[in-house]
C-alpha cells in the first residue's frame, strides 16, 4: 500500500534501509536491463546503427587487414626456400671422386637439410626444357654449364640472412667450388618490408583507434542529447551519476563490439577475395603458400579492442555531457 503506516517514526527513507542483497539484486537487474535496452534501442533505428557500426568496422578492419597481410608476408618470408637455397657451381675440371667426397662432407653437415647434385648434362637438359632455347644451344660446341650442387640450409638458418651469408662464404672457400649463388638481399628486403609493415599497422591502428573513440564518443553524445529529459527526471528522483551512465556505457560497448565483429568479417571477406590470386602468385614462385585469414588471436585482439574503445568513447561522452545535465 502506498499509504504510509501511522507511526511515530514514519517509514520514509526506504532507500537507505533496504537490505543489501536486495540492493545488489537491483543493481544487477539494472545492468541486465541497460545491457538489453541499449541493444533494443540500437535495433530500433537499424539503418543509423548499421552505418555507425560499419564506420567503426572499416576503421578497425584497416589495421587488422594490414596486420593479417603482413603476417602472411612474414610467413611467406619463412616459407621461401627458393632464395634460402644455395647453388654451388663446381669447377669444370672437378674430378668425380673429389665431387663425391665433397657431397659426402656436405651431407654430413647438420646445418644443411638437403644436398642435391646436378651434373652438367642434367643442368643442360633442365635449361633446355625451361628456356626453350633449343635452336641456340645446338650452335654451342660443348656444354657450357657447370655441375652444380644445390644445398638447402636448415629452417633456422634459412630466415637469417647474416648466418646464410656466413655459410655461403664458408662453402665458397672449398677448392672445388668455383662460384656460389646465395642471394640474401631479397630475403633482407622482404624481412625489412615485413618489419615496416608491422610498425605501419601499429601506427595506423593507433590512429584509427583514436578515430573509433571519437566516433563512438560523438554517437553517445547525440544519444545523451536525445535522452536529456529522461536524464533530468532520473536525477531528480535520486538517480546517481553511475545509474545515468550505465545505459550509455552499454550502448558504447555494443557499438564497439559489433563494429569489431563486422571488422573481422570484412577482413575475412577481403582475404577470401585475394586467396585465388595469391595462390597463382605463389605458384609462380614454386611455393604452395596459401593466404591465411585472421587468426583467433587477431579475433580476440579485435573484439577486445573494439569493446574497450566503445566503452572508452562512451565514458568520455558521458563524463562530459551526461554529468553536466542537472535538473533546473
Amino acid at each position: 500500500m502506498i499509504r504510509p503506516r501511522r507511526s511515530a517514526k514514519p517509514r520514509g527513507a526506504s532507500g537507505a534501509r533496504q537490505r543489501l542483497t536486495d540492493r545488489f539484486a537491483g543493481y544487477l537487474h539494472h545492468h541486465r536491463q541497460s545491457c538489453s535496452d541499449s541493444l533494443i534501442r540500437l535495433a530500433a533505428s537499424p539503418i543509423q546503427s548499421l552505418m555507425t557500426v560499419m564506420v567503426i568496422a572499416i576503421a578497425l578492419a584497416l589495421p587488422a587487414a594490414l596486420h593479417t597481410l603482413v603476417n602472411n608476408l612474414g610467413m611467406l618470408a619463412g616459407d621461401i626456400d627458393i632464395e634460402a637455397r644455395m647453388s654451388l657451381f663446381l669447377r669444370q675440371d672437378a674430378g668425380d671422386d673429389d665431387v663425391r667426397l665433397l657431397l659426402e662432407s656436405l651431407e654430413s653437415r647438420s646445418d644443411l637439410t638437403e644436398v642435391t647434385f646436378i651434373d652438367s648434362d642434367q643442368a643442360l637438359a633442365d635449361f633446355r626444357r625451361s628456356s626453350g632455347l633449343d635452336d641456340l644451344l645446338v650452335l654451342l660446341d660443348g656444354n657450357p654449364l657447370p655441375a652444380t650442387i644445390l644445398v638447402r640450409p636448415n629452417r633456422e638458418l634459412g630466415n637469417q640472412p647474416d648466418s646464410l651469408e656466413k655459410l655461403a662464404g664458408e662453402l665458397a672457400e672449398h677448392p672445388l667450388v668455383d662460384d656460389i649463388s646465395a642471394d640474401t638481399t631479397w630475403l633482407r628486403k622482404l624481412q625489412a618490408a615485413v618489419a615496416m609493415g608491422r610498425e605501419f599497422a601499429m601506427i595506423l591502428g593507433a590512429a584509427l583507434a583514436l578515430g573509433v573513440l571519437l566516433i563512438i564518443g560523438n554517437t553517445i553524445r547525440l544519444a545523451i542529447e536525445n535522452r536529456r529529459d529522461e536524464i533530468t527526471v532520473v536525477k531528480l528522483v535520486g538517480g546517481t551519476d553511475s545509474y545515468v551512465r550505465r545505459p550509455f556505457l552499454y550502448t558504447g560497448f555494443w557499438f564497439g563490439f559489433s563494429g569489431a565483429l563486422a571488422a573481422w568479417l570484412l577482413v575475412w571477406l577481403g582475404i577470401a577475395l585475394l586467396a585465388d590470386s595469391a595462390l597463382q602468385l605463389a605458384a609462380l614462385y614454386e611455393s604452395r603458400f596459401q593466404l591465411q585469414g585472421p587468426g583467433l588471436d587477431t579475433f580476440l585482439v579485435l573484439v577486445s579492442a573494439g569493446s574497450i574503445l566503445g566503452l572508452g568513447g562512451a565514458w568520455l561522452a558521458v563524463r562530459q555531457h551526461a554529468n553536466a545535465i542537472e535538473p533546473e
Binding site: 526506504s14 545488489f24 537491483g26 537487474h29 528522483v237 535520486g238
Partner: peptide, 21 residues
Amino acid sequence: ALPLQIMGHPQADIGRRVRAA
C-alpha cells in the same frame, strides 16, 4: 516505477508498490 528501479527494489516489490500508488 522509476524511483523504485533507481533505488534497486526487487521487481515484485516494485509491481506491488506501483499499483498501490
